[in-house]
Simulated assay, not measured.
Amino acid sequence: MPRDEIEVPKELREFMLEEAEETFLGQKNGANKQYRYGNLHIREYNEKFLVHTDKIDPRKDPVGHLVHDAPEILIGLVCAIFSGSQVIKKLDKNSKKKSLASGLLLSIICGYLGYSTTKKLKNIWSK
């Protein structure tokens, strides 16, 4: 759990803002549902809610949200696109299926490595 996240046990009281909207935007982290209310991101689990504030509301500025709140996703995407395109350019142009398969595999691996490394660094820097 990030240091800036607040845990609200459900047995303490049912917590939910009437104006909060259920959303698919954001990492669910195993939550049953997630909601947004302005910059507030609320994850609902069986026994609790986890609540944190994002710097940028992804519904209003998705790119700004990726840059400021979720750089690991942005870096993972950039790594995936760059590595995959480089493999496709360099491999034999006569074997397009092999080039595409290799490019896709490498883009998945590099995208995941970029994502996970950035996420670890973000957690270290936030402590």
Rank of each mutant, 00 (worst) to 15 (best):
E11F: 12
K89P: 03
A20P: 06
K28P: 04
A20T: 07
N94D: 15
A101N: 11
P9F: 07
S99L: 10
R59D: 09
D92M: 13
H41M: 07
D4H: 11
K120C: 08
S83D: 06
Y45Q: 07
E21P: 00
T117F: 11
E22V: 13
S85W: 05
I73C: 10
S99P: 02
L77N: 03
K119R: 14
S85D: 03
I88D: 02
V8N: 10
L113R: 12
G76M: 07
G26W: 01
K93R: 14
E47R: 03
T23V: 12
E7L: 15
I73D: 09
E21H: 05
I81D: 05
R36Q: 11
L104K: 00
E5W: 15
Q34W: 02
E44M: 08
Y37I: 08
H68D: 08
N32F: 13
C110N: 07
P62V: 08
L74K: 00
D57V: 00
Q27Y: 14
A31Y: 08
L106Q: 09
S83W: 08
F82E: 02
I108G: 04
R3M: 14
E22I: 10
L106T: 11
F82R: 04
V63C: 11
D61K: 10
N29G: 07
L105Q: 08
M1L: 15
V51P: 00
K122G: 06
N94K: 15
A101R: 12
N46G: 09
R36G: 01
L12V: 06
I88N: 01
R59T: 12
G38A: 10
E72P: 04
I108T: 13
D92G: 09
L66G: 00
Q34K: 12
S95N: 15
V63G: 09
G76H: 01
P62Y: 10
K55C: 02
L12I: 09
N94R: 12
L105H: 03
E5M: 15
K33Q: 15
N29L: 12
E21I: 04
A70Q: 04
K98E: 14
D54Y: 05
H52N: 10
I81G: 03
N46C: 08
C79Y: 08
I88M: 07
N39W: 04
I81V: 12
L74R: 02
V8Q: 10
L104W: 03
A70D: 00
I75F: 06
K96E: 08
G84A: 08
S99D: 02
G111F: 05
A80D: 02
K93I: 14
T53L: 13
H65S: 12
E19K: 12
H41C: 06
E5V: 15
T117I: 09
T53P: 00
I56H: 05
F82K: 02
G30K: 04
E18Y: 08
Y35G: 04
N32S: 13
Q34V: 06
H65G: 00
S102H: 05
R59I: 07
L106I: 14
L40Y: 03
S107H: 04
S85Q: 09
G84S: 05
I108C: 10
K127E: 15
K89D: 07
L40A: 04
I73S: 06
N29M: 15
M16F: 01
K55W: 04
K98H: 09
E44W: 05
I124S: 14
I6Q: 10
L113H: 10
I109V: 14
K48P: 01
I109Y: 05
G114P: 08
L100D: 03
A31W: 06
V87W: 00
I73Y: 13
D57R: 02
K10I: 12
D69K: 01
I81Y: 11
G103P: 00
